[in-house]
């Protein structure tokens, strides 16, 4: 089992390193930080612009390979480079990383568990009302881009607040900066967490449940489930003990792809609910041609994918004895 996981680890690390490097290349080619200095009033001398850009390793006239080497060297030493305004990317990264991680973690855990349960339940109760309702609901959710869900939730929150007369649901920022006292701040953070998490969880649940439902239906017709019932297990017990575990297996690798989608989703929720996380940073950095910041976000997503990949491999190996053998 250890060997298997090690092999998978190497595979993931290789993929992730290449993905992160590719992001840097694309950003370095596509974004033009020099444009930021155009149209400044008073105009900045071309030579001093070049000097600044060189200083930050952002000069588009330097061959991209050279810039990459410089950047990669920095990254290897734990330095993600400078932003277009001269700040340390590391500082901004540190400020934002927790914000996004919190969202991703909550949505992944609650979303995957919820989705598996909803999907399995739907399969067991196939064609009953509860199955139809969850199926229809997931169709609806999957037909909506994240921003539509996020904005709709926000509009509903405003309506509810208006109806109640005071702010019961928070929809901007991470906490109320006017508060003191740890307890109050904590409560406020939780309140602010509600809508962004809910947006992401709803989507994850819908994604996982569709998939889980169909793998569970496959298992429902399987021979081994019939054997389990022939042994004397009731339908429910057979499903829970023999069916669910087998049906979860094909869903586990989905974790990686769903995390990628989740990151994209987080970008929208952060923007819409005014959270200062990695996704918001990405969007802002692209408009400010901030190559190193974009590359840093690329590193972050690569890392998230790496963790998700490992997690899914560990889960898979724990659930399926067949991969443990070699």
């Amino acid at each position: 089992m250890g060997r298997y996981l090690l092999r998978r680890l190497i595979n993931h690390v290789a993929l992730v390193l290449i993905a992160a490097s590719l992001t840097y290349f694309l950003a370095a080619i596509s974004l033009n930080p020099r444009a930021n200095f155009a149209g400044r009033n008073p105009p900045v001398a071309a030579s001093s612009v070049t000097a600044t850009l060189n200083d930050y390793n952002l000069n588009p006239d330097t061959p991209v390979v050279v810039r990459f080497a410089h950047w990669a060297n920095g990254v290897a030493h734990g330095d993600l480079g400078r932003t277009v305004t001269g700040g340390e990317v590391n500082d901004e990264f540190a400020r934002r990383v927790g914000v996004s991680t919190r969202l991703l973690l909550i949505a992944t855990i609650l979303g995957s568990i919820g989705g598996v349960l909803v999907g399995a339940w739907g399969a067991i109760r196939q064609y009953r009302t509860s199955d139809r309702v969850t199926t229809l609901a997931s169709f609806f959710v999957l037909a909506m881009p994240v921003f539509v869900i996020a904005v709709t939730f926000k509009l509903w929150a405003i309506d509810i607040n208006d109806a109640v007369g005071h702010k019961v649901i928070e929809y901007t920022g991470e906490y109320d900066p006017g508060l003191t006292g740890t307890g109050e701040i904590l409560l406020s953070r939780l309140q602010h967490l509600l809508l962004p998490s809910l947006t992401l969880i709803v989507i994850q649940v819908a994604l996982y449940s569709r998939y889980q439902r169909s793998t569970m239906l496959d298992v429902l017709g399987s021979d081994f489930l019939r054997t389990a019932r022939a042994k004397g297990l009731s339908r429910r017990a057979a499903l829970m003990k023999h069916g669910l575990r087998t049906a979860v297996l094909p869903v586990v690798p989905l974790l990686v792809y769903n995390v990628v989608l989740l990151f994209t989703g987080a970008t929208f929720t952060e923007k819409i609910y005014g959270w200062h996380g990695m996704g918001e940073w990405l969007v802002n950095s692209i408009s400010t041609n901030d190559v190193n910041a974009v590359a840093a976000v690329g590193m972050f997503t690569a890392f998230v994918v790496l963790i998700a990949g490992l997690l899914s491999d560990v889960l898979y190996a724990a659930l399926d004895p067949r991969v443990r053998v070699r």
Binding site: L15, V16, A19, T23, L26, A27, T264, V283, V294, T301
Partner: peptide, 13 residues
């Protein structure tokens, strides 16, 4: 494993 949103967004300019 590359978020397509990120890539297309970066390439949009």
């Amino acid at each position: 494993v590359m978020p397509s949103f990120l890539i297309i967004a970066v390439l949009s300019p």
